[in-house]
Design a binder for these strands. Structure first.
Lengths: 260, 260
DNA sequence: GGTGACATTG
DNA sequence: CAATGTCACC
């Protein structure tokens, strides 16, 4: 089974590229982030014509996640509140979480807040959001041993996940508090699928649109598949497909393909 | 000598098209309207590399006029106030007038206000602006027998300048008050260069972006060259080049070329 | 309705 | 640098 995560930065703008990519790369589940479209306007039919099932949780202009699946998903839910009914409903105003079950594997597709700049309100929101996510997974895990949590985490955990550059400690996506918040989540029992197969640095999933970052390979690995032990054992490969980033009007992220 | 008028609807967006057109159509003066850029940001060098001299009077986002000339122009001025020092300076807040002299011919390049809708404040502004223009030309004429006044007039004077459609009297660009205001100006001693050569209708310089107006040739002739008698006598041709309107990302106007 | 400029976000 | 919404204009 192939599970892909891809922050498309607007599904409407990227639709043709995503369909083209799907035609060349048949997969089982495609986890999209930053769809930037409300559900009634999600372009379902291009996927449905290829035989895929579409589940989306979107909003106007920002955020938005979707699951594109070769088979109908079970137990689909969006946001934190279906699993954490007692939390503040405001946590689900931004559409960043969608989950569903295929072959007894729970896919959790996430678009983790970017956090803007250290010390900003958005940074605080990111850290608190990660605490809610911790709680969410803690609640899921007892009944759900097979979880594939993937998406755009907006966090690079290790130095080798970032192109060489000094003074990254105070950089968003690399600061200690957000890394620790993510490590706390992984400590619930998740492991990084990509690092099962590839230990060296220089493999990235995101390159800033600015400053010719892609051309100079100034990238970050911030799109991840985190697996519970059974799935981690079963993982066969985890590959970053750099090609879509080379397209004329690319997303700033490129797909990451897990095979289990 | 070839004098061209072209409302480009943003010189930055249309730059490539305009340079391409100039390369195929060597001309003496290009009068641009709706440049939509302040003078320091006007893309001078692409024109200067082709040997042209650039004179611009622009503002942020709206309006803006420019003269592109194969020879240096004399006596360049922008706005009404250099000729009419006693008028309210507010008349020059919108950048709609630029003039310069080549071969003892005064080029007056105009972007007449559109007027929005009959009875609106913008309509009143258009009528009053035309009165100021009348005064401006009256002041210029005694010392300047050769005037080529051209640009986007946002007025079609005759039925044959507009595609067939009923009830145009109350339509902006065709209403009697604005037509009369323009006729009053022409009565100072100007004649329509285009109508020296072409009497039949169906020749247009502007097509609305909406409703497939260009495809259906639902156009208007609102971009004009008005000449004083000596120049009118000398006029050799006046041609509308429809081709640029067929480009992928066209201006809604197409260039009109006068040869004298 | 079809453009373009601009402000905001990432 | 590349998205979106909002606005103004035609």
């Amino acid at each position: 089974m192939k599970i892909v995560t891809w922050n498309v930065n607007s599904i409407r703008i990227r639709l043709e590229q995503v369909i083209f990519w799907l035609n060349q790369s048949p997969i089982d589940i495609l986890c999209l982030q930053e769809t930037k479209v409300i559900d009634p306007e999600f372009p379902r039919s291009p996927f449905e014509k290829l035989g895929y099932y579409v589940y989306s949780s979107g909003q106007k202009a920002y955020n938005g996640v979707a699951l594109i699946s070769s088979e109908p998903l079970k137990d689909v839910s969006v946001g934190f509140t279906p699993i954490l009914p007692n939390i503040e409903p405001a946590w689900d105003l931004q559409k960043r979480v969608i989950t569903g079950v295929i072959d007894s594997i729970r896919i959790v597709n996430l678009y983790v807040p970017n956090g803007s700049a250290l010390g900003s309100d958005k940074y605080e929101f990111k850290l608190n959001w990660l605490k809610v996510l911790h709680h969410y997974l803690q609640t899921l895990l007892p009944s759900q041993p097979k979880i594939c949590m993937c998406g755009d985490f907006n966090i690079a955990l290790a130095a080798e996940d970032i192109y060489q550059k000094t003074n990254l400690d105070n950089h968003i996506m690399a600061s200690e508090p957000e890394r620790q918040a993510l490590r706390d989540i992984l400590d619930l029992g998740f492991a990084d699928a990509f690092r099962k197969f590839t230990t060296e640095g220089g493999h990235y999933s995101w390159w800033d649109y600015r400053a010719g970052a892609f051309r100079r390979n100034m990238g970050w690995r911030i799109d991840h598949h985190y697996l519970t032990p059974i799935l981690y054992e079963q993982a066969k490969s985890c590959i970053i497909d750099v090609n879509p980033r080379k397209s004329p009007q690319p997303s700033d992220h490129t797909p990451v393909i897990l095979e289990i």
